[in-house]
């Protein structure tokens, strides 16, 4: 798998646009998911995905293989989303009603995670809470707790150091718990 990706990367750098499409097909779902978590709505996520893909294509020649291709690609994706947020000055906290008015939905008709099939309301609350986090914390939490990147990978994606990443994740998690604790009906007391 790794070898196949390396071959595709080489071909894409050499100018093979078909190889580039095949390469990005493997990452587009995750990239879209990250964009969706960072942006307020699906349209913005779509635009960020397009912009990220184009940036990756244009920057291919500058990829020197010092990190894995996916790490490099997600860094570009995250930067694209953060740039978009800065441009649009998206409010860190939005009311659920406002988000619904924007047509926001955290998932499409294909998103039926079996684990939470009976907890759609909880998913919406968590999504909303994630949106309420500051950009730096949100990016760290999404990459770690949702996407499962390692601390080193996150440090590389966010162009910072591991210490900073840990700090952001810790504060982000604490903030999430704070926000969600205000909805005890969703996160009710249970025994450990």
């Amino acid at each position: 798998m790794q070898l196949e990706e390396e071959r595709l990367v080489e071909k894409a750098i050499a100018g093979d646009s078909y190889a580039f499409e095949l390469l990005m097909e493997k990452h587009e779902a995750k990239m879209y998911a990250v964009a969706l978590r960072m942006c307020a709505n699906r349209d913005d996520a779509q635009d960020c995905l397009q912009d990220a893909m184009l940036r990756i294509y244009k920057s291919l020649k500058s990829f020197k293989g010092q990190s894995s291709f996916s790490t490099w690609a997600y860094r570009i994706t995250m930067n694209t989303c953060l740039d978009d947020l800065r441009r649009k000055k998206v409010r860190k906290a939005q009311s659920l009603d406002a988000m619904l008015e924007l047509g926001w939905t955290p998932s499409d008709e294909n998103d039926t995670p079996e684990r939470h099939s009976d907890n759609a309301e909880m998913r919406r609350s968590i999504s909303r809470a994630i949106q309420m986090l500051p950009d730096e914390m949100r990016s760290a939490v999404v990459l770690r707790d949702i996407q499962g990147f390692s601390y080193d990978e996150i440090a590389e994606i966010l162009s910072t150091n591991v210490g900073t990443v840990k700090s952001r994740i810790s504060r982000g998690r604490e903030k999430l718990r704070e926000i969600l604790s205000s909805q005890p009906e969703l996160f009710g007391h249970r025994s450990v």
């Binding site: 779902a29 995750k30 499409d108 039926t112 995670p113 684990r115 998913r123 499962g148």
Partner: peptide, 9 residues
């Protein structure tokens, strides 16, 4: 964990 696994563009 796996919050967005099922998300497809």
């Amino acid at each position: 964990h796996g919050f967005d696994e099922a998300i497809e563009p």
